[in-house]
Amino acid sequence: MTNTRTTPPREAPPGPRPAAGRRRGALRTYWPHYLAISPFYVLFLVFGLVPVLFSLYLAFQHWDGIGDMQFVGLRNFEFLVKDSTFWLSLYNTFVIWIMSTIPMLFLALVLAVLLNSSVRFTSFYRIAYFIPNVTSLVAIAIVFGAVFSTNQGLINAILGWLHIGAVPWLSNEWTIKLVIAWLITWQWTGYNAILYLAGLQAIPTEMYEAAKIDGAGPVQTFFRITIPQLRPIILFTVVVSTINGMQTFTEPQVLFGGNASINPNSGGPGQAGLTAILYFYREAFSNNDYGYGAAIAWAVFLVILLFTAINWRIVQRRDKGAA
């Protein structure tokens, strides 16, 4: 993609450049900056670091939650590597993530562009599309369970009316994932659309005017101005969706009997809805194996790290290619 003159100046550092070496000098020069970012780090040190270290410590213990801990070395991790359920849960998480993130971000972008162009009723649409995000997940899980129910569900009623047979949505391995992905897409599309919209609104109107003068059509404008300008926000949504998607937990938990007294938190038939964090939750809190739970959580963390790094790279590289 070639550079147009409408691309804004990037990476023009307004702040002073770091002085080479000399730490004390750096502190004297940059203290306002360190002060400005400090609240987060202080809070993390006080409330976040101890739990993180504690869970790391736990990953090497056998602990039932109340009794004494027992040091087991790397045994939890040895189990983890061999544990087919863990790999299944990672696979499930990944499939659900793909099935939800791609339609979600695509629809959100389309929606944002539409909302940005439609002048009337925008605040109505904005509220309407955002409502799924504020609704209580417990209530929604009940609604989704009812809508996708085999015998009395609305979806199957419509399918029956169209003379297509009933689908056992919450019994089949793939449709279980589809319903979970649908729930996530439904809940987060409006949210991402509004993030994109915020980014769209921040693009100065002069850039579009300049493009018009240059004779650019709407498609050209979209790819040459809108997308490059929106890139930081797109990067943000991709990273956040990756992190949240890899941590999918509440949806399958409420859909597939977190309250069930027989075998709770198992993720439904064939364990098709057992995500990695749900597995962690099941091992730690349903089965009282806190050490193994911690080991699972750390493995998930590493996977998230890996995927986020990959996605960041992909989006960033495009960024550099375009700029």
Binding site: A146, S149, T150, Q152, P168, L170, S171
Partner: peptide, 12 residues
Amino acid sequence: APQAGEQDQFTA
């Protein structure tokens, strides 16, 4: 009966 959720089972 085919596998189903609890409410579904009751309805059936």
